[in-house]
């Protein structure tokens, strides 16, 4: 059951990546909230543009793909249930993984 996506934004349109030079992630992001959500309301309070709470008290992500926003990464990290994932629609990979890889790459490049 864990890891199963309970509520996601509507079908991704797979908007083409706007690969702008140094950007770690190129495409729009899809937000998913998993069943492990414990309804802390942290995401809905911190980023009301991206999350809403339905009549059934469940947290829902913005329905459409969204433009990359560092605020979302903070919200993902703030979720105590670790129930939110961001998918980079250009690569189909989780945004976090791409970001970490980019950070690693940057570290390597920075070495003399």
């Amino acid at each position: 059951m864990s890891g199963e996506t309970a509520v996601t934004g509507r079908d991704a349109t797979g908007t083409p990546a706007t690969t702008g030079g140094q950007r770690a992630t190129g495409g729009q992001w899809r937000i998913s909230v998993h069943k492990s959500c414990r309804r802390s309301g942290i995401c809905a309070a911190a980023a009301p543009r991206y999350f809403s709470v339905g009549e059934d008290h469940r947290t829902r992500p913005a329905a459409e793909p969204v433009d990359p926003d560092p605020e979302l990464i903070e919200v993902v990290e703030a979720c105590p249930a670790e129930a939110i994932t961001l998918t980079d629609l250009a690569t189909g990979r989780p945004v976090e993984a791409a970001r970490e890889a980019a950070a690693e790459g940057a570290t390597r490049e920075a070495r003399p």
Partner: peptide, 8 residues
Amino acid sequence: SFGYGIHH
């Protein structure tokens, strides 16, 4: 019971 929002 644990609150709601950023101070959860």
